[in-house]
Amino acid sequence: MTQTETNLLENLQLQLEELESLQAMFYNPGEIKIEDAGVFFEIKEFVAGKLNVVPPRLGYVVNLLIEGKKFEMCVSLSHDYPFVKPEIFLRSHLLNKVQHVELNKKIGEFLTGLPEGEPCIFTIISWLQDNAHDYCTLEKLENSNESYQEQDDKVLARYWIYSHHIYSKTKRKALTELAHQLNINGFVLPGKPGIICVEGNACDVNEWWQTVKSMNWKRIFCKVTESNKEETKSTNFLKFHGFVEKVFENHGPKYNHMNMGEFFKYLDEHQLAYIFKDLFGVEARSS
């Protein structure tokens, strides 16, 4: 067994042990929900030496009741965890968009300060139990943003975001839910690289981006920004209706064989073909 294989085995063993500890503490039905029971089984089989194929990454949701509010803490672990930070996203239907943005931003900052190499999910839960109340009372912050909202309401923006990769089901779900919550349009293209387009009112698009970039990424950046600063809204600027996940003739579980021709066609259908070169540095080949 190579050193890499040994490290993977040890990491997955630690992940299972941490999850089992959490299940012992949160034993009521529904408190912990594993994203894919089949993946969980494969990881256990791999750790036990009964499976030779590397299993997909582990994901689960911890449902918490804090200050009378229900929180969902979505957890996604790469094969390198705990030596790489977990992907965490908090949500609650009782929180407004400002509260969601601020809480998830703070979780990202808290994660950055934690030591590497140590399981940290329980630490994050403890922090949330101690601090969530501060982010459930941000009405003043929301009110203070009303004037900014009014000023920026007529400005439309479109962000083109480039990520090293987007595989995690938990993260993809978080991207979509946050977009729906903020009423912005666009798409996420999972795979390697991952491409995201978001458009809508400039303040909402910026809020979405500030929250998303605070999540744990290997590399993510906003590559192109566009805006329409006319005095009145122009529906011609907005090219999408709603926010969706798009996959073009993927092969394999990691969406790593995207059909670039189909992606270009999708952009062209939305009058956005010009952006292809800006994203990838090459002209698209016509089919």
Results as ranks from 00 to 15, higher is better:
Pro29Gln: 09
Val47Trp: 03
Glu45Val: 09
Asp36Asn: 15
Leu22Phe: 04
Ile32Met: 08
Glu17Phe: 05
Ile66Gly: 07
Lys44Thr: 06
Val62Gln: 01
Leu58Phe: 07
Val61Pro: 00
Lys50Ala: 13
Leu51Tyr: 04
Gly49Arg: 07
Glu35His: 04
Tyr60Lys: 02
Met25Ser: 11
Asn28Lys: 13
Val54Leu: 11
Ile32Thr: 05
Ala24Asn: 05
Val39Met: 09
Val62Ser: 08
Glu20Gly: 12
Phe26Thr: 06
Tyr60Met: 03
Pro55Met: 11
Leu51Ala: 10
Gln23Phe: 00
Val39Lys: 01
Leu19Pro: 02
Leu64Gly: 00
Val47Gly: 04
Val54Glu: 07
Tyr60Pro: 00
Ala48Cys: 07
Gly59Trp: 08
Phe40Ile: 06
Phe26Pro: 03
Glu35Asp: 11
Gly38Trp: 15
Pro55Ile: 11
Ala24Arg: 06
Gly38Pro: 01
Pro29Ile: 14
Leu51Asp: 00
Glu31Pro: 01
Tyr60Thr: 01
Glu45Gln: 13
Ala24Thr: 04
Val61Ala: 07
Pro55Cys: 14
Gly30Ile: 08
Val54Ile: 15
Asn28Phe: 15
Val53Cys: 12
Ala24Gln: 03
Leu58Pro: 01
Ser21His: 12
Tyr27Asp: 13
Ala37Asp: 08
Arg57Thr: 08
Glu17Ala: 15
Glu18Leu: 05
Glu31Asn: 08
Glu18Tyr: 00
Gly49Trp: 06
Gln23Tyr: 01
Leu19Tyr: 01
Gln23Leu: 12
Ala24Glu: 02
Phe46Asn: 07
Ile34Asn: 06
Glu42Cys: 09
Gly49Phe: 05
Ala37Ile: 04
Pro29Ala: 12
Glu20Trp: 07
Leu22Asn: 03
Glu35Thr: 11
Leu19Asn: 03
Glu17Asn: 09
Glu31Cys: 09
Arg57Lys: 10
Ile66Asn: 02
Ala48Gln: 12
Leu19Asp: 06
Ser21Ile: 10
Ile32Phe: 05
Pro55Val: 10
Glu20Asn: 15
Leu19Lys: 06
Val61Met: 12
Leu65Tyr: 00
Lys50Met: 12
Leu58Thr: 05
Glu42Asp: 10
Leu19Ser: 07
Glu35Cys: 03
Val61His: 03
Gly49Val: 08
Leu51Gln: 09
Tyr60Gln: 00
Asp36Gln: 12
Val47Thr: 02
Ile32Ala: 07
Ser21Leu: 13
Gln23Gly: 06
Lys50Ile: 09
Ile43Pro: 02
Leu58His: 03
Glu31Val: 09
Phe40Ala: 15
Ala48Thr: 09
Met25Thr: 15
Gly59Thr: 10
Met25Tyr: 09
Ile66Thr: 07
Ile43Gln: 02
Lys50Pro: 02
Pro55Ser: 12
Ala37Val: 09
Arg57Tyr: 02
Asn52Tyr: 10
Val39Tyr: 04
Asn63Leu: 14
Ala24Ser: 07
Phe46Glu: 03
Lys33Gln: 06
Phe26Glu: 08
Asn52Trp: 11
Tyr27Phe: 15
Leu19His: 05
Ile66Lys: 03
Glu18Lys: 00
Ile66Arg: 02
Lys33Asp: 00
